[in-house]
């Protein structure tokens, strides 16, 4: 009897051990599988998903190193992808829209409104002294080279290289890079000189608000102005602000890891390039108003003196001030034959 019970219990245990897993397996197989679920219960893409999440949440994925240079521990820098996307995808479009947009707007304005006419007289009045003109032209000459070499950085490989070939483009780009780095210094000096020379005449005041409301005379009526009108003051502060920002970010890029790390340098380059595009557009506007846009305005920086009637039309308050200083308008200018 005892041996019979023992045999029965042994058989029961054996059946349980064999049939149990089979029954559970059949039951699991009959359950409807959820979408995307692996039959083994593992998620084969889990590691990749985690990696992507890691890239999104960490700006730098670092290891631990015992050597003095801790930069060697930087394994992956996902933030660099955003920088690359900006540099390769967004920046060319932003620069093209801003710069070409300005050219199109000015061309349309010129076609519709034409050049702004100015009265003429036989007298001249000194507008800028030699130091002011020297400062302007030094900064301007440097800006032209800096702008062209900067544009080569954005558009060169897309527009210039297909035209002149990789060898010529490589040589030209290297020369452009040298000129960009070296001419940045006289440019920065020019910005500081401009600030020192013209800041006192560029403090905003109530006259500027009236000038803006009158659209600088374009919308009709006479717009009063001192030595610099509101439009010129905007250009001045743009040049000073952008110039200082370009100088600071440029120096940070010239000396890697001195003022900023890799993230900081990428940010500096984004700021440098974005401001550069806006700066070029702003200077195109400045060149337009100083040459084609307003008749007689180029003489101010070209010769240092302007027609007295021109000055009265565009900077009447400044002329009055100069006349008061000279104690009589007759001493201000010297008669010149009308051109």
């Amino acid at each position: 009897m005892r041996s019979g019970l023992k045999l029965l219990s042994t058989l029961l245990v054996a059946v349980t051990l064999v049939a149990g897993p089979v029954a559970v397996g059949v039951a699991l197989a009959q359950e409807p599988m959820q979408a995307g679920q692996n039959p083994t219960g593992q998620d084969p893409t889990a590691d990749a998903v985690n990696e992507e999440l890691l890239f999104k949440h960490e700006s730098t994925i670092r290891g631990v190193v015992s050597i003095p240079d801790k930069r060697a521990g930087n394994l992956i820098q996902p933030q660099g992808r955003e920088y690359r996307a900006f540099h390769e995808r967004w920046l060319p479009w932003i620069a093209a829209v801003v710069i070409l947009g300005m050219i199109v707007v000015l061309a349309a304005f010129l076609l519709i409104k034409g050049r702004m006419k100015s009265p003429r007289s036989a007298e001249k009045i000194k507008r800028y002294n030699v130091l002011e003109r020297f400062t302007h032209w030094m900064t301007a000459a440097c800006f032209i080279v800096l702008a062209l070499s900067g544009l080569n950085y954005i558009f060169g490989k897309r527009l210039l290289m297909p035209l002149i070939g990789p060898d010529a483009f490589g040589t030209a780009s290297q020369l452009a890079k040298y000129s960009h780095v070296y001419l940045a210094w006289p440019f920065m000096l020019g910005i500081l000189l401009m600030l020192a020379l013209w800041v006192k005449d560029n403090i905003p005041n109530r006259v500027d608000w009236a000038w803006l409301k009158a659209g600088g005379g374009v919308l009709g009526g006479h717009a009063h102005a001192g030595r610099f009108n509101a439009g010129q003051k905007v250009i001045f502060w743009m040049v000073i602000g952008f110039g200082l920002a370009m100088g600071f970010t440029g120096i940070a890029l010239l000396f890697p890891f001195t003022l900023a790390g890799i993230h900081g340098m990428q940010l500096m380059q984004v700021v440098h390039a974005s401001i550069g595009a806006l700066f070029i557009a702003g200077i195109i506007l400045h060149i337009y108003t100083g040459t084609v846009g307003i008749e007689g305005s180029f003489a101010a920086m070209g010769k240092g003196e302007v027609d007295l009637a021109w000055a009265r039309a565009h900077h009447d308050l400044w002329v009055e001030e100069q006349q008061a200083k000279a104690a009589g308008g007759a001493h201000l200018g010297h008669p010149q034959p009308a051109e």
Binding site: F134, M138, A141, P186
Partner: peptide, 8 residues
């Protein structure tokens, strides 16, 4: 202008 370019 010329002096400015030379100086630059």
């Amino acid at each position: 202008f010329v002096v400015a370019v030379v100086a630059a």
